[in-house]
Design a protein around this nucleic acid. Sequence first.
DNA 1: GCGACAG
DNA 2: ATCTTGTCGC
Length: 227
Amino acid sequence: MAYYRPPGPAPDPIIVRDLTRQQDEMRRLVRLQPLPHEPRLIAGCDSSFPTPETVLSVFVVLRFPTLEVVEKVYHTSPVTLPYIPGLLAFREAPNLLRAYEKLQHQPDVIMVDGHGIAHPRRMGIAAHLGVLLDVPTFGVAKQKLTGNYQEPSLAKGSRSPLTDKSGELLGEVIRSKDKVNPLFVSPGHRCDQATATRLTLACLRGYKLPEPTRLADYWAEEFKKEL
DNA sequence: GCGACAG
DNA sequence: ATCTTGTCGC
């Protein structure tokens, strides 16, 4: 619905250039491949902002494929960067890493709220987090960042490819529930499209959002109230 | 020059 | 992301 961006502090062009270069470096480390084995534990993560200068990140670990919650943790820290399309990871990943360190259980794969390689430089927050943790990751976003696609049919389970101008596959647009806006699923690191799509569908429980993200979303909101 | 623009 | 009430449709 964001047809334009309200006036605000113009992001420092020098910072933007530097972070963009960091992404181009990290991009070379990304590996698209199937998981070594079926996951036993899958994690979901998300961030909320109790105040404009505070970020709160949550990690929820679920057993797979039963989806029972095994554990959930959160961490808060001061915001260091404004939101800039394409540079979301530099704003949220640092705090997500701190939250991840608090986990007692190490997940086999992480479902991240945002895009994986469906990014201008193929380094969305899911790929970024995957490289930093060296853990399999994939992204599930509610809105498109880049790429083109045909609207999938209105039935749950219908999908259509998300591609860039040259036709390269960036991700898949998936209808996770009848008649609701589709999800944008793309691999992050050490994961491939087939796996990302399969796991997303396997985590649906009647809601638009797959359980890992839905629960992380829920707790990110709950923990915020506790502050 | 004109759109598009994760959370 | 966040601010916010009611309301339309299945």
